[in-house]
Design a protein around this nucleic acid. Structure first.
Lengths: 228, 228
DNA sequence: AATTATCATATTGTATACAAAAAAATTGAC
DNA sequence: GTCAATTTTTTTGTATACAATATGATAATT
């Protein structure tokens, strides 16, 4: 009972869209959503405004709001920008990172490895995201951190489908170790370089991303829920 | 008469905040703004949602929305990210830029120089922004272009106060030429490097930015309107 | 005099009512 | 049967009404 149901609804809807609960281009029905959340149309509409600015939804005057899943080209572009942001965060973090943060990175990486061996996809995703978030924070640039988090959150469902290929996980782990070492050594350029390549979409990753896009969002969600 | 007054109000308010029409921390009064725009509170509130997500305004439940001008540290951080984005756009553009775009860059730069000589600040700012926007577009990455535009727009008023120092304008023009040459040569690394330094805040620019922050937003606007 | 309690007022947040526009359905002509 | 025009229905957008919470003032108590 926050007194701001609109914000809760915005967060809820954002999660649903990112998880792929709606098909691309689907219209969000104010009335049905209001009934679903047991509120009036007003807070639902306020939530729509937020979603439209973050690009998750397109608002067409007098027509309604439609969920807008990024197409293949836009996805590639977003990953390209993400790679550059991570590289930048890494370059900054290399000269600023604390010993505690380095420990946290190693712990997160170990947890990733353990999760891989245990076949625990959920934990893997969580710890992997944490690993990267630590680097954002250690960049010492709070604005960059915020932008990186925003983009990471937006790309999260697509990254999942990408990481499902088991073959890449060992390499991904190895790259994590290279990143930690570069950061520990204060080697900004290596940290930036490895991070950029780590995040960038290239080679086989590209094809897997494309393949995942041919599934419907519902399919993606079902696969994710199944855990790989 | 779009049928979406809320969007118009959002744009209007965004402009007012960016121009510094409100003091930092000032509360935006729903009722007064509704009267000012001659609408009810509903579209004003919908506009608030958008502003809050873009960070121009902070929304505190049951308290209201307050304009949030970035402080010195956040500004530095934003310029740092902007510099990196421009560098990345330049690196991409170097291998993709069209001959027509190169012509446009040279034209915009010439217009900048002419405006400087004529003491026409407004034209200078406009053409300078155009110069950079051409590079965003020529990066070939529409997502990057959008993000860069967003940040450019957010930083615009602060960049103005920074460029007011006449002494830097010749150097800025020279840097523009270096950028154009690097792009024309397809020299991605040079383009990236020069653009990063061109946008970054360092040395005397830093002090001027700090000095401009000691003025109230109203003062800044008055100075801008006066044209330098 | 200072502090707390209580009350009045103002403001936010949500629900509902209404107007305008678009989508859908029905009717009519060919 | 198909297409166009008109009517009906939905749906969006805005205004207003109401409820809940916070703010400010006043009164009471120590």
């Amino acid at each position: 009972m926050n007194g701001r149901r609109a914000d809760l609804i915005a967060t809820e809807l954002e999660g649903m869209i990112l998880q792929g609960d709606f098909t691309n281009g689907e219209r969000l029905d104010e009335i049905k959503l209001a009934e679903k959340f047991e509120v009036s149309r007003t807070p639902v509409r306020e939530a729509f405004q937020k979603l439209s600015l973050s690009g998750l939804v397109e608002q067409i005057p007098r027509r309604g709001v439609f969920v807008r899943q990024p197409g293949p080209i836009e996805l590639i572009e977003m990953f390209e920008v993400m790679a550059e942001m991570e590289a930048f965060a890494g370059r900054l973090a290399a000269t600023r990172i604390s010993d505690i943060a380095l420990q946290d990175l190693r712990r997160a990486n170990a947890a990733c490895e353990a999760a891989t061996k245990a076949g625990d996809a959920a934990t893997y995703y969580l710890e992997n995201e944490l690993f990267h978030q630590i680097i954002y924070t250690q960049s010492g640039n709070a604005f960059l951190e915020g932008e990186a988090l925003r983009l990471q959150r937006r790309l999260e469902p697509f990254r999942r489908s990408q990481l499902r290929l088991r073959g890449r996980m060992p390499q991904s782990m190895a790259e994590h170790k290279l990143i930690v070492n570069a950061l520990a050594d204060g080697d900004a350029e290596t940290a930036a370089h490895v991070l950029r390549n780590h995040v960038a979409i290239q080679g086989e990753k590209f094809q897997h991303l494309m393949a995942s896009l041919r599934q419907t969002p519902q399919d993606q969600r079902r696969l994710s829920a199944a855990g790989g």
